[in-house]
């Protein structure tokens, strides 16, 4: 017991001296950081990396807003970057002056959410749509009608995310409306569509998607492209849809929070990630694309061949947005009315 106490105290103290040299505290979504990537970085720089994990952009935001410090690298999604910047939570890293900046691909250099890459560099990007079990339904899956006007085979076998924003966005695209609408008439249409769909929905849940698909509990599920790859690897009938109405796209970004104890090491990590051979390790692990030119050749063959990563020509990519408080308020009302 005594030795346990002593070692615990030592642990608590060591957690407290985060500012010591040669360390890097990484705060990222779970299962979203390749262990090999960290090992390579540690081997090349001698910096020891500690990884903590969170579950949502909101959690990250709440923690940074409260003044929690100790993290050197955080990974906000593109539609949250502006919020973090306007709340004064991110440090400038002036990525354009760093080694390797020229490697960022044209699509992700100076993106709309961070012009000039003042605060961020791209980490991974992907799309959100849905996965269909083509053993159950063999027709054309590239339309939101699969979700909202389901064919008889799929009735009652639909899984939706448990997230107002992601469910409503798809309903809006299906109706041909814009995202983040502040128009009550449009939102009434969205609510009507979702209420009509509710009987055919088996569950609203963002957790355990692959399990429900694999077990046959649902035949369609809202999904991210990276996870759809994993579903297909287990069952080739699991196909990822690219709805012709437009596919929702997102990008996660590497940023350095204000108060980072190891700013220099964080910059080393940013430069490290702009090297194609490094970020390719991450893509191979997570199954998502990245924004660095030259890394595609270094990906493993499965990933190169994965249709989930390349939307067909002509399918519009719709980046999700930071909605205004008024739009969020309308979304809340729709969501509560749907699930009351």
């Amino acid at each position: 017991m005594k030795t346990l106490t002593v070692s615990t105290l030592a642990l608590m103290l060591s957690a407290n001296i985060a500012a010591a040299e040669g360390e890097l505290f990484l705060y990222n979504w779970t299962d979203y950081t390749a262990p090999d990537l960290i090992e390579k970085f540690e081997a090349e720089t001698g910096i020891s990396v500690t990884l903590d994990t969170y579950d949502s952009n909101e959690t990250l935001l709440a923690k940074l807003q409260s003044g929690a410090t100790g993290y050197d690298i955080v990974v906000p999604s593109h539609n949250f970057v502006q919020i973090f910047v306007s709340e004064g939570l991110l440090q400038e890293i002036s990525a354009s002056e760093l080694t390797g900046y020229e490697n960022i691909s044209a699509d992700f250099a100076s993106p709309s959410w961070d012009e000039g890459n003042v605060y961020t560099i791209p980490w991974q990007w992907g799309t959100t749509s849905f996965t269909v079990n083509t053993d159950v339904f063999g027709g054309d899956i590239n339309t939101y009608d699969i979700l909202f006007q389901p064919p008889a085979e799929l009735e009652g076998k639909i899984g939706m995310f448990r997230s107002a924003d992601e469910v409503i966005s798809m309903a809006q695209l299906s109706l041909g409306l814009g995202l983040c609408s502040e128009d009550p008439n449009e939102m009434q249409q969205v609510l009507d569509l979702l209420l009509a769909q509710k009987d055919d929905v088996k569950t609203y849940s963002s957790d355990g998607i692959l399990e429900r698909l694999a077990s046959g509990d649902v035949a369609v599920h809202q999904n991210w492209n990276g996870y759809s790859i994993r579903a297909r690897e287990e069952n080739p009938a699991m196909q990822y849809a690219f709805p012709k109405e437009g596919v929702i796209t997102w990008a996660d970004n590497i940023a350095v929070p204000v108060g980072a104890p190891n700013y220099d090491n964080a910059i080393k990590f940013v430069e490290f990630l702009m090297q194609p051979e490094n970020i390719a390790i991450q893509s191979n692990f997570a199954g998502y694309s990245n924004g660095i030119t030259g890394s595609a050749d270094l990906m493993n063959d499965d990933l190169k061949a994965a249709g989930e990563l390349s939307p067909p020509e002509g399918t519009p990519l719709v980046f999700s947005q930071t909605c205004s408080p008024a739009a969020v308020e309308l979304q809340n009302r729709v969501w509560t009315a749907l699930l009351q």
């Binding site: 509710k198 929905v201 088996k202 609203y204 849940s205 355990g208 699930l339």
Partner: peptide, 10 residues
């Protein structure tokens, strides 16, 4: 409620 109830009602 979320996992076993299907989350169809808040």
């Amino acid at each position: 409620p979320d996992l076993l109830g299907g989350g169809k009602n808040l």
